[in-house]
């Protein structure tokens, strides 16, 4: 994913909501998430509930390609993470 080249946010600028946040993951042999680093602790993934691909902007030459996973963690919470197919970086995001 290409980082947005923009000026620092000021009071009068439009701000996006729900921007992705970088996250560290441990992957299994199948390249699926096995644990998520959150608050300095690794939280094991109990179940991958869903997985899907998103491709946007290819028609305008600004392609964004992501592979999303919805994960159920051992502590009972559910989070969504995705891997940017361009940079290979992992992010978490509310859906």
């Amino acid at each position: 994913m290409v980082a947005t080249a923009r000026a620092p946010e000021r009071a009068h600028s439009i701000r996006p909501v729900n921007e992705p946040v970088k996250v560290s993951l441990r992957l299994g042999h199948d390249r699926k998430p096995k644990a998520v680093l959150h608050d300095g602790r690794w939280r094991p993934v109990v179940q991958v509930r869903d997985a899907w691909k998103v491709k946007e902007g290819w028609w305008a030459g600004k392609e964004v390609a992501r592979l999303y996973f919805e994960l159920h963690l051992r502590d009972g919470s559910t989070i969504a993470v995705f891997q940017d197919m361009d940079s290979r970086q992992w992010y978490s995001q509310r859906l």
Binding site: S13, P16, V17, N18, V54
Partner: peptide, 19 residues
């Protein structure tokens, strides 16, 4: 807090904070 592109497949593009 405004809807900008509510049908976008990228969640961060659906809403924005407008001054």
């Amino acid at each position: 807090y405004r809807e900008v592109d509510p049908w976008s497949r990228l969640p961060e593009r659906r809403n924005a904070l407008i001054p």
